[in-house]
Write a protein that binds this DNA or RNA. Sequence first.
DNA 1: TGAACATATGAACAGTTGTTCATATATTAA
DNA 2: TTAATATATGAACAACTGTTCATATGTTCA
Lengths: 117, 117
Amino acid sequence: MFMGERCERVDTQQIETLLKVIPEAESISKMAAVFQALQSDTRLKILFLLRQKEMCVCELEQALEVTQSAVSHSLRTLRQLDLVRVRREGKFTVYFIADEHVRMLIEMCLEHVEEKT
Amino acid sequence: MFMGERCERVDTQQIETLLKVIPEAESISKMAAVFQALQSDTRLKILFLLRQKEMCVCELEQALEVTQSAVSHSLRTLRQLDLVRVRREGKFTVYFIADEHVRMLIEMCLEHVEEKT
DNA sequence: TGAACATATGAACAGTTGTTCATATATTAA
DNA sequence: TTAATATATGAACAACTGTTCATATGTTCA
C-alpha cells in the first residue's frame, strides 16, 4: 500500500478526533525523555538503590562497580528529568528519589516484566 | 577519588544488603527493554492512540504520518515486550493495549511531565 | 592558605537505534 | 488462479547513547 492511500477501515474523521485526545507534542517528547532515562541498566539500578535509602555518589559508585564519572553522568540525566533530587550534606552530595510517581513507574514496570509465566 | 577506594560514608556491609534487595539482573534488563520501547515518540503516540481504540496498522499509519514499514517495526517492538497484543480480523491485523500496567505506565509518566510548574 | 576528598563536566569512541527502501508474505475477492 | 490489499521483514545508513579518560570545580580540615 502506498503512502496517502487509505484502507477501507480508515475513517479520516474519527482519526482526527482520536489525534486531538493524545497529549501534545511537547508532553510526548518529555515522556520519551523520561523513558529514555529509565532505559539504562545502570540508571535503573540507581533508582532501585535510592528507593531503599538516599545515597551519595560515592556509595552508588561502590555499589554499582562503574566509574565515578559514569555514576555522575547517570545522576545528571535523572536529575534533569526530576526523577531524582539532590541535597548537599557537608562535602557529600546526597541523591534521593524525587517523588511517588517515580516509585510507581519502576514498580509498575517491574510487575509487568515479572508477571509473565 | 580512585576506583576501589571508599569515602567515609560508605558502609560496605550495608551496601551488600541493599544490593540483595534490588531486582535480579534479568528483571532489570527486561525493564530496560520495556522503557527503551517507550522512549520513542512514534511508539508513545501509538500507545496513546490504542488507549482510545484498537486499531489496524493502516489506521495507525494514517494517523501518524510515517511509513507503513515504520509503524510495523514499531508495533513489533511493542508486541515483543507484550505492551500491545494482536488480533486478526479478516485481512486486517488489529492491535490493542496489552493490559492495565501499560495504561498505568504511560499515565504515571504523563502526570509526571505535566505536573511541573 | 594548601592538600585531600567529593563530585561534575567535556571529548571521544564503540555500540545501538529508528527510519526508509525494497521486497516478501498473507488474506480476500474476482 | 490472479490481482489487489494489508502487513511483515531485512538491509543499510545517519543519528544518538553510555562509557571511560582526563580534567575542572567545589568542599573540608589541618
